[in-house]
Design a binder for these strands. Structure first.
Lengths: 337, 337
DNA sequence: AGATACTCAGAAAACGTATTCTTAGGGTAA
DNA sequence: TTACCCTAAGAATACGTTTTCTGAGTATCT
């Protein structure tokens, strides 16, 4: 009755159980308390009052939240949920909670979110960070344990776990070249995306090796972008299209269908990421698959290491590989033939 | 040097600026401080030391976190990111942070997550909760402001914002009936889903009205489920398939393609939710569209009301409507004709 | 000119918890 | 039997912040 509406505290429980707050705390946290009757009294009082420990006060006292924050550029991209599930798998197993935030592909918002999360979390996972190198420097100054996925940073005490996208790109190019393609278009991702630079470099290296021409046009990371930009590529006489990711490929496929161009008879399409829907499309999408779940698991494991010793930051790289489905085939026979 | 590695506190700033901690706090929070030189000293000291206020301590002191937690059954379902973006839109505008958690369609995990979030947040949004009514009672006992989407609860002080799915279902049935369909199959969602019951009821009511037969088989909420279960429906002589959601429809479409059945010539397919990929499929999916973004915005607005007065809990319902694309058409002419 | 009101910044308290410190009591050993 | 040690639980403290309280100095009004 003393405090009409506010939550009961250890003090209330102590008073009700005729014990000290220290005893209440000890009982409720499983510390050794000798007198069984006392233990029972405290337990009963806590249950009676519906006592729930104040999480914020507890975290404050401990100086630790057992919570990990993760920032993704766009939750609507089906790539990330798989990574998140991997992360959750690893982190909840070690009694950590997972807090997810979406920055909408906005580098400033991303920095802001990291700032806020860093105050409430013990560590942070940055998925495919879009922010500038300067911003990453700022974040490093905050000294919070952090691991980046899909981006390697130089000279910063961050763990990184990335994808060897050149590997998959090489396989894609070789697959297309073997089918007879000599002119490949690339629908590039957001300029702020580190992944895009890696994929593009891998593509160009493999293309040069196999003597195939590559035409690059800027698209983005969404189906809409792929849908809008695809025609630019058609004007450049390519017989196959590689997309920055599956979403972009999906948009390209839709546009090709509207244009009456059959895939793969008239033109081949290759995606990247192997998002869950890719296999269900018609035609099923040939794409580069990456170990998304593992990516999350590895990021979680690395972050846990960083939690015990900040100096353990390492860089890791996971493989990628082409999975051939129905959206690729030989180029159409030249009309002049 | 006193504290070698730990973060600087107001105390450090005060000492460095030769001011009191009260003054430091006032300056840093924009409270009135008269002496400009003092203000400058404090600001300079804070910048110099790289002082960042301890968020947990601040939240503890305030008893408020300005943070909203949201639990979704499955982030991999493209329905939810749209809702989340609506929520974020509303909530960040009112200076609230958004914390997202994924319970993997597990009702127990869902309850657990709500318990954890409730300790760190001022309010919670439960998206399409899968937990039992008893569990909801437990949550109600915790007394945290909460709003449910896609589920209406009786006698609990929760706000709810749902979808009038009967509306869309009626339109879907009428559309199919007008095309000549008399036998419709329904790929039902998870049994724990309140939405499924609503959609099923709407479907059955509309079907009875229009004199069409409806066959129900249990599927789930994933493409995989739709892919696996679809054949069961084919044995029951239906000419059109309604799916619990677009993901299930996607799986059904893939299975039909494998079976060599043309959509919509041989069979029609209708989804639910209108997830972003639906429009990009081949054939583009006829589906029931729901105002996902609005759903999030309304949930956010309602929760903000609850934050100021717990008694303001209201129930709201948003419309749904059919969007006709390419996956529906007249039933095939009877072979016997 | 004197007293009162007001302003400004420092001192101190409070939030709820976990834990260290303290004290009282009992048991054991010399 | 006394002294010492150990145990068990209560008292007190600290975590970092915000805010109320307080006291001193200045200005204003009569």
């Amino acid at each position: 009755m003393n405090s009409p509406r506010s939550r009961p505290t250890v003090f209330d429980v102590a008073r009700s159980a005729q014990a000290s707050i220290a005893t209440v705390s000890r009982v409720l946290n499983g510390r050794a308390v000798a007198d069984q009757a006392l233990v029972d009294r405290v337990r009963a009082a806590a249950r009676e009052l519906g006592y729930r420990p104040n999480t914020v006060a507890r975290d404050f006292r401990h100086g630790v939240t057992r919570t990990i924050g993760v920032v993704v550029p766009d939750l609507a991209n089906p790539f990330f949920p798989d990574v998140l599930k991997g992360l959750a798998h690893d982190l909840t197993a070690s009694d950590h909670r997972l807090l997810i935030a979406d920055c909408n592909e906005d580098p400033d918002e991303e920095l802001r979110l990291v700032g806020e999360l860093s105050g409430r979390c013990d560590g942070i996972v940055l998925c495919s960070p879009r922010m500038s190198t300067q911003s990453l420097d700022v974040v490093a100054g905050w000294g919070i344990p952090l691991v980046c996925t899909n981006r390697e940073v130089e000279g910063l005490p961050f763990g990184t776990v990335g994808i060897d996208s050149a590997m998959g790109m090489r396989q894609a190019v070789e697959h297309l070249a073997a089918l007879g393609h000599r002119d490949i278009g690339y629908l590039a991702g957001p300029s702020s995306s580190w992944s895009d630079r890696g994929r593009r470099a891998g593509l160009e290296a493999a293309a040069q090796e196999r003597g195939v021409r590559v035409v690059i046009v800027g698209a983005g990371s969404t189906s809409h972008a792929g849908h809008v930009v695809l025609p630019e590529l058609l004007n450049r006489n390519v017989t196959a299209v590689l997309a920055f990711n599956d979403l972009v490929a999906l948009g390209a496929l839709a546009r090709l269908r509207e244009l009456g161009l059959d895939v793969p008879a008239a033109i081949s399409v290759v995606g990247f990421d192997d998002i869950p829907v890719a296999a269900f499309l018609g035609p099923a999408l040939t794409t580069v698959t990456v170990p998304k779940h593992d990516l999350g698991v590895r990021a979680g494991a690395m972050l846990r290491q960083l939690l015990v010793d900040r100096a353990l930051a390492r860089r890791e790289r996971l493989p990628s590989s082409l999975v051939v489905r129905e959206s690729t085939g030989p180029p159409p026979r030249d009309i002049a033939t």
